[in-house]
């Protein structure tokens, strides 16, 4: 990681007021992201998506976000004006959301959406934008880019929607990409090819990335560093290559519960949750 981090997050909290009381989705999470691939793993409901969304203030109402510090290249994001945030969003920090259906404009063809995303962030003309959009569709392994260009979001499959989202988010060449389960709807071979594109952008252009996933093996093999979240907190962090040697019983429990091709044991150890995990790891 180079000198100063791209993103600094300190004591991040996200809560939702509900009729039954306040749900604390994120409870004091701190981390930094440099020009690296930071993975966030954990089971569903552990607060991964809300952590990622907080960075761009995309937590849905009635969620409330607070932090001691939330800064992109030294600039405060929590207190930034809406106008300032719009200038950063998409152009400098992009986010690929878990469900592409909610992030694509339903009444605009996918090709035009990608081309527009390019034009907002460059002074290219329409022909140039179209050419770049087609290139990008090809880069995310869409077999017939010309045909897909003219389709509407409801006309594409979930896996194709994910790749279209990725194309749209990458085309402005952001400095930081927040990718929330970006490849969960893709087949393993396509997933690998799409990850290779993200990998290259990080390596070649020095893009930083937050990669959110529930797939421990994938994160361990793809990322540089990993945060393991449980019930809104980071219970452990480690270098991705060291995940096998993780020490927290929650992390160990998750790893042990995975069936493995190289381990012929039949009965899988079942995770027993310790109530103490709920209170440790916070600030």
């Amino acid at each position: 990681m180079s000198d100063s981090p791209l993103l600094e997050v300190s004591n991040l909290r996200v809560s939702f007021p509900t009729r039954q009381g306040v749900t604390e989705a994120v409870r004091g999470v701190s981390f930094t992201v440099g020009r690296e691939k930071l993975g966030i793993v954990g089971e569903s409901g552990s607060g991964k998506s809300m952590t990622g969304r907080s960075v761009l203030r995309l937590v849905p109402a009635p969620g409330v976000v607070g932090a001691d510090r939330l800064a992109f290249r030294g600039e405060d994001l929590l207190g930034a004006s809406d106008k300032r945030l719009r200038a950063i969003r998409g152009r400098r920090i992009a986010m690929v959301m878990q469900d592409p259906k909610f992030s694509l404009n339903p009444v605009m063809t996918v090709g035009r959406q990608i081309a527009e995303a390019y034009r907002v962030h460059s002074d290219a003309g329409p022909a140039e934008a179209r050419r770049r959009a087609l290139e990008m569709l090809e880069a995310v392994r869409i077999r017939d880019p010309e045909r897909v260009y003219g389709r509407y979001p409801h006309e594409v499959s979930g896996g194709m929607g994910q790749r279209i989202m990725i194309a749209m988010m990458l085309i402005p060449e952001p400095e930081l990409l927040i990718a929330d389960e970006p490849t969960s709807a893709l087949d393993v071979t396509v997933q690998m090819q799409v990850l290779a594109i993200l990998d290259d952008l990080c390596g070649r252009r020095g893009m930083g990335m937050i990669f959110i996933s529930h797939d421990l093996n994938l994160v361990a093999s793809f990322c540089d560093r990993i945060l393991i979240m449980y019930a809104g907190r980071v219970v452990e962090s480690c270098r991705a290559s060291e995940l096998r040697n993780a020490t927290h019983p929650y992390t160990r429990g998750l790893l042990d519960s995975l069936p493995r091709l190289d381990d012929p044991r039949a009965e899988l150890p079942v995770l027993t949750r310790d109530p103490a995990w709920l209170t440790e790891g916070g600030q």
Binding site: M192, A196, L218, A220, S221
Partner: peptide
């Protein structure tokens, strides 16, 4: 064999060969 390789986690070189 390709399916097996792809299910063994991310591998830049493997992705290239698919």
């Amino acid at each position: 064999r390709q399916l097996l390789r792809a299910s063994q986690g991310y591998d830049r070189a493997a992705a290239e060969s698919f």
